[in-house]
Amino acid sequence: MSRRTGIAGLSLSAAAFIALVISEGFSPSATVPVKGDRPTVGFGSTYHADGSPVELGEKITPINALKTAKAHISKDEQRFRDSLPGAVLNQAEYDLYIDWTYQYGIGRWRASPMRQHIINQEYRQACEALLLPEYRKVDGFDCSTPGNRRCMGVWTRAKERHQRCIDAGLQ
């Protein structure tokens, strides 16, 4: 098994940052990516580095989008670490939960069962919680519905994250 360490010494790996922005995709203009979602710009950013919300139609360059995503992640990483006193994770686990937090937000992370499972060192249960029904819905629509064209990417990403989580715990 890959060694777990105190999360105070971890930060999002470069490979995970690249995977995150690739999975988010780049949009030079703010749009609503999935019905019921907030406007996003760049690499899925819903807020600017200064904390102001993204508004429809705003424009961004790829370089500024990377800077915005990195600023957002850096803020969330500190909040994430603060939410897990005494917890230990390996790098792969840390990376995938930061990815989850980027997608769903730090508020949902704090209320998530994954957080409590990690604190309790229940790593398999934390992985399984990634697939709970509340994390496969957008605006009340179940994205795991076969053949849907509305938000299949949400479900695909959840399944991929779950598999990476299981694999990370087995290393």
Rank of each mutant, 00 (worst) to 15 (best):
P39N: 03
P39Y: 02
T40L: 12
V41L: 14
V41W: 10
G42N: 14
G42A: 13
G42W: 12
F43S: 10
F43Y: 15
G44H: 11
S45T: 12
S45R: 12
T46S: 15
T46H: 07
Y47E: 03
H48R: 15
A49H: 05
A49L: 04
D50C: 07
D50E: 08
G51S: 08
G51M: 10
G51T: 08
G51L: 09
G51N: 10
G51K: 12
S52H: 01
S52F: 00
S52W: 00
P53D: 01
P53T: 03
P53K: 08
P53I: 00
V54T: 00
V54I: 13
V54K: 02
V54C: 01
E55K: 12
E55G: 00
L56Q: 06
G57T: 01
G57E: 02
G57W: 00
G57Q: 02
E58F: 00
E58H: 02
E58D: 03
E58Y: 00
K59E: 11
K59A: 05
K59C: 03
K59G: 03
K59I: 00
K59M: 06
I60L: 07
I60E: 04
I60V: 11
I63P: 01
N64Y: 02
N64K: 08
N64T: 01
N64F: 01
A65G: 08
A65W: 01
A65S: 09
A65D: 04
L66G: 09
K67E: 10
K67W: 07
K67S: 08
A69E: 14
A69S: 15
K70P: 06
K70C: 09
A71I: 11
H72I: 15
H72P: 03
H72F: 11
H72E: 14
I73G: 11
I73V: 15
S74T: 06
S74V: 01
S74I: 02
K75F: 02
K75P: 04
K75I: 03
K75M: 07
D76P: 00
D76A: 06
E77T: 07
E77Y: 04
E77R: 07
Q78D: 14
Q78A: 12
R79S: 09
R79L: 14
R79A: 13
R79V: 03
R81G: 03
R81V: 13
R81C: 10
D82M: 08
D82T: 09
S83K: 12
S83H: 10
L84W: 04
L84N: 08
P85D: 06
G86F: 13
A87F: 04
V88T: 12
V88K: 15
V88C: 04
V88H: 07
L89E: 07
A92M: 06
E93C: 02
Y94I: 04
Y94F: 15
